[in-house]
């Protein structure tokens, strides 16, 4: 508790003390491309205000904020991480601003002829998932169980990046990742849509860290506003 109080103080002093023209945004790694575009657009609309960006795994960011890192805004890839910060009184009330869903990623050309989640049970394929300890692994497994597929993965990657690298290189025949990851991945990866009935939709909440000021509030509004939402749509995110 002492640590958290100290962290809150640091966060407060960081946004209160002379840095009024900078908004420090901590966002989940899966938001990297989208939030870069959003930050650029926001800076364009608000001359004189700079957006500091810090992208990392949601749980890492949670730890950084709890340890007193100077964040003004936190955008998480899942609700539970955000809830931890709410419980610690480190953030204001969160609001969902986007959704993401899972997709099957296959190497360009799909030489293994993967069609749907059923193929994840094929033993002749090299299948990759994210490790169960990270969100994309948790959701990937949930998707497979919704489809009643008993998959035997050949690897459980510690993060999406590692999984995508191997699919992109053609070393894995298929994996389950976020839709937005496929959009971001480029030409080396093709998406196979997972039907809504078997899919998992995750919500992305955003919240102000510590006491809000006008720029911070304006940034959150911008993300949830039409321009921010359009950018998020471009990057594959769904509406909240």
């Amino acid at each position: 508790m002492v640590v958290i109080a100290a962290a809150a103080t640091v966060a407060l002093s960081a946004c209160g003390g002379g840095d009024a023209d900078t908004v420090s945004v901590f966002a989940a790694a899966s938001l990297t491309d989208a939030f870069d575009d959003i930050a650029d657009a926001f800076e364009e609309e608000h001359p004189g205000v700079l957006v500091d960006r810090n992208f990392a795994g949601s749980s890492s960011l949670r730890e950084q904020i709890l340890q007193g890192a100077p964040a003004d805004v936190f955008a998480s890839a899942n609700r539970s991480t955000m809830d931890d910060l709410v419980a610690a009184d480190a953030v204001g009330s969160p609001e969902d601003f986007a959704t993401n869903r899972m997709a099957i990623a296959v190497p360009a050309g799909n030489s293994a002829e993967v069609r749907d989640l059923e193929d994840f049970a094929r033993s002749d394929l090299l299948i990759g998932l994210c490790a169960v300890e990270v969100p994309c692994g948790e959701f990937g497994r949930r998707v497979l169980s919704l489809a009643s597929v008993d998959a035997a993965p050949d690897t459980e990657e510690p993060d999406v990046r590692a999984l995508l690298t191997k699919i992109d290189a053609g070393e894995l025949d298929a994996g389950i990742v976020y839709v937005t990851d496929v959009v971001a991945a480029g030409d080396g990866i093709e998406e196979i849509t997972i039907p809504d009935l078997q899919n998992v939709v995750t919500s992305y909440p955003i919240a102000v860290v510590g006491a809000p000021d006008s720029d911070t509030a304006a940034f959150v509004d911008f993300v949830r506003g039409s321009r921010g939402q359009a950018i998020l749509r471009d990057h594959g995110f769904g509406a909240p």
Partner: peptide
Amino acid sequence: TVTFAGNLQGRTQTMPLAVFLALES
């Protein structure tokens, strides 16, 4: 190791990989 061999308990998951994933949870 994780980039080349992947990560699967009992097959390719070495101690450092286990430690890294345990850090997440």
